[in-house]
Simulated scan of single mutants.
Amino acid sequence: MTDRDEYELDPDYYKHGGFPKFEVARPGEGFGRFLTAMRRAQDLAVSADPDPDTWSAAADLADQLVALLGPFEAAEGVGPANRVPSLPGAGSLLMPPYRVTQFDSDAVELTVRFSRFHVGGNYAVHGGVLPLTFDSVFGMVIHATGRPISRTAFLHVDYRSVTPIDTELTVRGWLREAEGRKAFVNAEMRDPDGTLCAEAHGLMVRLLPGQP
């Protein structure tokens, strides 16, 4: 869907709830290095067990990082997070590091690798992380099929087997049915052997003009 198509379908397309128009960001090589280091820091934050002095030193360094970046805090859609498709997770630490391998009206497919940061117990991915991943895929499906800005009305997840960390998984989402403002979306996650880890279905509803 082009910008003109969006406007002709709904003149207030980019005013729904004040949604910013997201465009690809080019923050420079340092941002990718920063994200890689931060993802590793997240893993260590939930797995490291150093002595008290080391924790204090780590806290000092974290304080320095906050002080360095604090003056540059920006509004949504201005900072590069979630706007760099070439980086894992599109450059967002909120998301697990995924990479899109298919993006068209038939389906959206991506690979994702969860790590120690995402563990819920017994080295398996926390069940609450999977709805986050599926919800993001649902949003991609909406864009890939050319539908207007929508929000999730409901999302149901069925857990079929343990989802492992440190394994490249495949997630596939597709539009099952569309009816007016409603889009019914399905998705599934499989391990390298094809085992179904989890599947989801949900309802995405097109926003009305001015609706947040």
Score class of each variant (00 low, 15 high):
R99P: 01
G128T: 06
L65A: 14
A62D: 06
E179H: 13
L9A: 06
W174D: 01
A75Q: 14
L65D: 02
M204C: 13
P50H: 05
R147A: 07
G194V: 04
A62R: 09
T36S: 15
D5A: 12
D51H: 12
A183N: 06
Y7S: 07
R160E: 11
D166I: 00
G121Q: 13
V108S: 03
E188A: 10
T2K: 05
Y123T: 13
W55E: 08
A59M: 14
M38Q: 13
V157I: 13
L132F: 10
I149N: 08
S150C: 08
Y13T: 05
R151P: 02
G180M: 03
A183K: 00
A57S: 14
V129G: 01
L207D: 03
R181K: 10
E8I: 14
T111N: 11
A183S: 15
L44I: 01
V141I: 11
D53N: 11
D5W: 03
I165T: 07
G30T: 06
R206A: 15
T101I: 14
S161C: 07
P164Q: 02
R176Y: 08
G18K: 00
V119D: 02
L9P: 00
R181I: 03
L65S: 09
P50K: 01
P192L: 00
V78T: 08
A90I: 07
S105D: 10
